[in-house]
Every structure is written in C-alpha cells, then in structure tokens.
C-alpha cells in the first residue's frame, strides 16, 4: 500500500505539508485549537453571544458549527476521506447528511409543538 497517494493540502492549498506525518500533526493542532476555543467559550460565555438567532442562542450556533468543522477534519484527514474517490465520499456523506437533516427537522418540529401544548394549560406540571 506504499504507493497510495495522499493529498497533503489543507484549506484548499493554503497550507501544504511535506509528508503525511506532518499533515497529521497539523490536523491535530487545528483540532486542538478548535476544542480550546469551544472550551473557553463554554466557560466564559460572552454576554453578546447569548442573544437569540433563529430560536437558538448564537453561542450554540457557534458550538454546532465548530463541531461540524471538527467532524470534517476527522473524516477527511484521519479517516482519509480526502484520498478516496469522489463517488465514495458522496455515497457516504450525502446519504448521512440527507437522512440526518430530515430526522432533526421532524423531531425538533414535533417537540416544539408538544412544548406549546405543555404551556397551554392543558397539561399541568407545576406541582
């Protein structure tokens, strides 16, 4: 398997690594920075980020976006998705993304509805 070709670029060629080992450490540094930012935001919770945007705090939108960034680099570089064929990438990622988006939409929509029912005096939980 020594003849396997690796794509050694990150950020569309902004950073180029000399060999695969260097790239792995580069990705580790990237993931660590993202995690540190998440932890720092989680501890200090800046007031300005506690405002709501689309029914959720901006801070939570940031957390979820950073998580997807981390998921991207784990899949693309640690799991070598970057070096697989385009078709394999799409078969795995699109199937997943489509099904999960649908699942989230259905469940969150429904729970919002039940939340409203619970606060409309039909169901009492305040005892």
């Amino acid at each position: 398997m020594s003849h396997q070709v690796h794509n050694l670029e990150l950020f569309r060629g902004l950073i180029k690594f000399k060999n695969i080992t260097q790239k792995i450490w580069g990705v580790l540094i990237l993931l660590s920075i993202v995690t540190l930012v998440e932890v720092a935001l989680g501890i200090f919770k800046p007031k300005i980020l506690l405002l709501y945007f689309l029914n959720m705090k901006i801070l939570n939108w940031i957390f979820i976006s950073l998580t997807i960034v981390k998921a991207y680099y784990i899949t693309w570089d640690f799991m070598h998705m970057r070096d697989e064929t385009k078709t394999l990438r799409r078969v795995v990622v699109w199937t997943f993304v489509f099904l999960v988006l649908y699942l989230i939409f259905i469940l969150i929509q429904e729970s919002g509805y039940i939340f409203d029912q619970g606060s409309d005096d039909y169901i009492k939980r305040d005892f």
């Binding site: 999960v100 989230i104 969150i108 429904e110 919002g112 039940i114 619970g118």
Partner: peptide, 9 residues
C-alpha cells in the same frame, strides 16, 4: 436527535 427532542420539549 431524540435528546434534542426531549430538550426542546
């Protein structure tokens, strides 16, 4: 997603 359901509920 089920956790999200319970949480928004």
């Amino acid at each position: 997603a089920a956790y999200g359901f319970a949480r928004f509920r």
